[in-house]
Design a binder for these strands. Structure first.
Length: 275
DNA sequence: TCCTATGTTGTATG
DNA sequence: ACATACAACATAGG
């Protein structure tokens, strides 16, 4: 279930392993999660290295080890990290196990849309440093959003919000939550947003990220019933603000939930872009 | 059996 | 070269 805040929470599952040596590494080199990763080198280097620190950016996690080694993990759709007993025996979906004296740090992913990356060097790997600036950073400005939308004129705003190069960490539920709060219809084409809407979009991006991190990123608490999130999957779910029956439809290849009436298409239907 | 799934990416087309 | 749409990836659960 991992989007921004969930990833941040899941990252911390391995915290008890920080500062401790990795005694052994268990993995299946042919697992899809290791596509493009040198697993032999990973195993060689990480064995005997100490786990030093971890960080999250967007939906990715970076684990820094001694020996200038870095482990990157993306959870995909079904990935998770768990902390297990030191004698843990990996099951079918446990693709990477870092064995320590007191624990096993485990990465599992049934669908294997996630991935494990590995890098050795004095600087952080390029695939980490090239992640787009966070929505909560100073670089996420209204004009940056406006510029991006202007290059995606004919794409529904819902699909645009899922683009990691501008909205890092936003996934399907966050995108719907943001649009719901900004009162923008998910089908509205990016190029038809009025200035006021762009401002609202920018503001709600930041609000949803900040609140989600606060609520979920700390304790994995449920989000309040006042959020669209809590109602989006239930049949007959109602808008927490208007009480109207929520609508669900596939937009941009993803199931999208919105509140009719609250989120309306502009008069031109959001279908036409002038110029 | 059939449908769904909180993600990305490669490929085809405009 | 850029924008857009969508199948494909692999598995489990309702």
């Amino acid at each position: 279930m991992p989007e921004l805040a969930e990833v941040e929470f899941i990252r911390k599952s391995w915290n008890p392993g920080l500062g401790h040596r990795v005694e052994g590494v268990l993995l299946h080199p042919s697992a899809k999660v290791f596509r493009d990763t040198d697993t032999a080198r990973l195993k060689d280097t990480v064995t005997g290295a100490t786990l030093l620190s971890s960080a999250t950016a967007a939906k990715q996690m970076l684990f820094r080890l001694s020996k200038d080694a870095y482990l990157g993990i993306h959870l995909g759709m079904t990935g998770e990290l768990t902390l297990e007993a030191a004698d843990f025996k990996p099951g079918k979906h446990d693709h990477l196990v870092l064995q320590q004296k007191d624990h096993a740090l485990v990465f599992s992913d049934p669908r294997m849309f996630g991935r494990v990356q590995f890098y050795v060097g004095p600087q952080e790997p390029e695939w980490w440093t090239s992640i787009a600036p966070a929505i909560l950073s100073a670089k996420f400005t209204v004009s940056a959003v406006a510029d991006f939308l202007s290059r995606r004129k004919r794409t529904p705003i819902k699909a645009v919000l899922l683009m990691q190069e501008r909205f890092p960490g936003v996934g399907n539920w966050m995108a719907d939550e943001i649009l719901w709060r900004a009162e923008i219809h998910p089908k509205q084409l990016a190029g038809t947003l009025r200035e006021k809407q762009v401002h609202a979009l920018h503001k709600e991006c930041r609000w949803v990220c900040r609140q989600a991190l606060k609520i979920v990123g700390e304790k994995f608490d449920d989000l309040p019933k006042t959020w669209l999130f809590s109602h989006r999957w239930e049949d007959g779910g109602r808008c927490p603000k208007t009480g109207v029956l929520l609508k669900r439809e596939e937009i941009g290849g993803r199931t999208t939930c919105w509140s009719p009436g609250r989120q309306k298409l502009p008069v031109d239907g959001g279908r036409k872009v002038k110029g």
